[in-house]
Design a protein around this nucleic acid. Sequence first.
DNA 1: GGATGATATGGAGTAATCCTCCGTTTTGCG
DNA 2: CGCAAAACGGAGGATTACTCCATATCATCC
Lengths: 217, 217
Amino acid sequence: MHEVVEVEMGADRPPARSERADARRNRERLLSAAEEIFLAEGAEAPLDAVAKRAGVGIATLYRHFPTRQDLLEALLADTYDRLGAQARDMLSAESPGQALLDWLRAFISQVTAFHGMASSALATLETARLSDSCHRMRLSGETLFLRAQAVGEAPADLAFIDVLRLVGAIAVAAERDPATADRLLAVAARGFLSPGDDAGRPRSSPRGSRSGERRRG
Amino acid sequence: MHEVVEVEMGADRPPARSERADARRNRERLLSAAEEIFLAEGAEAPLDAVAKRAGVGIATLYRHFPTRQDLLEALLADTYDRLGAQARDMLSAESPGQALLDWLRAFISQVTAFHGMASSALATLETARLSDSCHRMRLSGETLFLRAQAVGEAPADLAFIDVLRLVGAIAVAAERDPATADRLLAVAARGFLSPGDDAGRPRSSPRGSRSGERRRG
DNA sequence: GGATGATATGGAGTAATCCTCCGTTTTGCG
DNA sequence: CGCAAAACGGAGGATTACTCCATATCATCC
């Protein structure tokens, strides 16, 4: 773990290998078109519409993205890059627990940009070979989590990937209702942001774990 | 079995209103066939296969179940009836919190019988006019929850429907991996089964199952 | 028990999508 | 330029979803 990740602009976008100009251009067009279409109609929208919007043939779409999930993952890559950056920015926050919670809220928010996106995101968490973007985001998020663990604001016997799974699940379940997502996150947060597991934490961390974001009595 | 169900709001089963014998028979055959097919191939299996297995024409299937979701909900009705009964049985358990947790575990287990089932279940939780079975199950489960609240094993400022949503979300996210589902439920349970504010932890301590939580490479 | 109208049935037919095959066009390079 | 590799486009076969309506079956009444 913690391998160097070879940030050579990633294998996400272009494999860096010689890529013809038209191929790159069409790829970008397809991504833009897919984003527009999916935002408007959800991730189940017909792929023909995406190709048409991009101004390319359907075969070109399939050549670049053999499956719908590939296309969705490419879209997710941007989101993951953004989230990774946000996580890094939050490292300087005063309360590690609060920072983690804020970041997870952002995660839900961004991963529910269109209908069906959260499902794809959840799927990417389980794929054997995840994209660089997803991997980097996970590492960045995990850093937030480890910091919370270090100060006893998160249980020590918990893996970050499971936190991400749980929050991803919430995103899927409440993708159409941000208020519900918020409530479910608040409940879940009590599970992974307890003020110390046992071992008698000096429970002097008043914020974050409870009562910060309760809604609906 | 409860024979008199005068509620008659959702119309799970035919309300015994004038229904021709062949129609009822075909309906049952369709449900059996759908269960077989979905168990084997998941909830996305072609409906033609269901009709064929049932030995009826495709039109008959659509007449009884206009949408796939209708068919799935009819299948879920049996599951909900079973879960409702289990919840009622658990009312006599010594620890309300433990009873609730056990029931939720059963919920996840039964609602992930086949791929795609959990999604449907989650959907049924949000439908405006829910089926009788779903409604009864919710009420029975809620009774367990209220009992846990009464003894301070569950937060007072929490709605049961949100617990169900959260657990349903876990079921969706981990429908292919019971071990993960179990871990996520354990985390979530810390959120809605906290020992109130103190009053000693419940003996829940849900079987660690921390062996499987290593990061994958 | 048999006529009769309401109900239910079956399967062909239409439509929407997915996805592939292959002849044509574009690009990069010597 | 000229050529080979790479990429393109769109027709078309395959797979479902869903509908229409002529026919068959059931429940009821006499």
